[in-house]
Measured scan of single mutants.
Amino acid sequence: MSIQHFRVALIPFFAAFCLPVFAHPETLVKVKDAEDQLGARVGYIELDLNSGKILESFRPEERFPMMSTFKVLLCGAVLSRVDAGQEQLGRRIHYSQNDLVEYSPVTEKHLTDGMTVRELCSAAITMSDNTAANLLLTTIGGPKELTAFLHNMGDHVTRLDRWEPELNEAIPNDERDTTMPAAMATTLRKLLTGELLTLASRQQLIDWMEADKVAGPLLRSALPAGWFIADKSGAGERGSRGIIAALGPDGKPSRIVVIYTTGSQATMDERNRQIAEIGASLIKHW
């Protein structure tokens, strides 16, 4: 067993022997301040990774656009098919120029040779490549099948209805392509620590998230040296922004954090800054 596999296998073990965790309302004060600064709703939840206990939450059962955070769930569904012998990570998928959609920095470079399922998941999570996500959605049967996968996990809230990039439209009061912070946090925890996926697939999923290259201005910008984070960000229309993450000190994750916002007129930089400040408060009061 590799060191990384050992780390993920012992996530519940280490967490069980940690000192009790206590909620700190100071972080919620910052979440509410972010709402004021952005002029928009902000949803927040913080779960203990081992027990699933909610440590703090704000608007945990209000719907927010998922945006690209759905790509972690998508690759979880792909990995479940791999575990069941219905898919192979090494299978190569070929596609054409007509398949390319807006923001496809990886797939646009491989029109000639195609990409493997493993490479597509890596591109979808680490670079948020939209064509990679659409190609992977095709392998599982489309958005409705991802929703069905989530329902089978016990998540009857999260739903995907459309493809990239239309799913980022974020129309107010439109339930399409949305989740709730509580539902997303619980589902992410199941994917990373539950028995739904094999140990190898859980490790692969967290490795992809740990290698995320496009979430630097968010929670990662607030992390002290030595902290662990595996995350996936999302951005959408109407001032929408979000991030889902597993993080913790001492090089291992111990909490799940989900943050979503929508309806702001603020710039992307300002949305990023507010999420980073929430992260800084979380870490300060850990």
Rank of each mutant, 00 (worst) to 15 (best):
T112K: 14
A84F: 10
E164P: 00
G234R: 00
M127G: 13
E62S: 07
R273A: 12
A84D: 13
T186K: 13
L28K: 14
T262Q: 10
A77L: 07
P143T: 14
L47K: 05
Y44M: 06
A235F: 03
Q203K: 06
A148W: 10
I243D: 02
E102W: 06
E277T: 06
A84M: 11
A225M: 06
L74N: 02
T27E: 02
G226C: 07
E26R: 12
D231Y: 04
R255Q: 04
D33E: 06
P253G: 07
Q97D: 13
I140R: 03
L188F: 06
T138R: 15
L199Q: 07
A133K: 00
S96C: 07
V106I: 15
V72T: 09
T186D: 15
R241W: 02
P165D: 10
T69G: 02
Q204G: 05
A170S: 07
V72D: 01
M153S: 08
D212E: 04
V42D: 02
S104W: 01
G52D: 10
C121D: 03
D99T: 07
D269E: 11
A148N: 15
R271N: 10
S104Q: 02
S80F: 12
H110C: 06
S240V: 02
A235N: 05
L49N: 05
A185D: 00
A124Q: 03
K232V: 00
Q265R: 07
R271P: 09
A132W: 00
K109S: 08
Y95H: 05
Q37D: 06
G242K: 02
T138P: 14
L136F: 00
G226S: 09
S68M: 00
L188M: 12
L135E: 14
G52H: 10
L282T: 09
L135K: 05
R189D: 06
S254V: 09
E195D: 15
D207A: 09
G114K: 05
A124W: 03
Q97H: 09
L137K: 02
Y44P: 00
H285W: 09
N168S: 12
F70I: 15
P181D: 00
L219H: 03
R81Y: 09
I278S: 02
S57G: 07
I278E: 02
E61M: 11
T267N: 14
R159Y: 07
H94N: 06
P105W: 05
D155I: 01
L28D: 04
F58T: 12
A123R: 01
E62C: 07
R189A: 08
K190W: 15
L146D: 00
P224D: 08
E46G: 06
A280H: 14
M127N: 15
N134M: 01
L247R: 01
I278G: 01
R118E: 07
F58L: 15
A230H: 01
A280Q: 08
R59L: 04
V31F: 02
T116H: 04
C75V: 14
E26S: 12
P25L: 14
R271K: 06
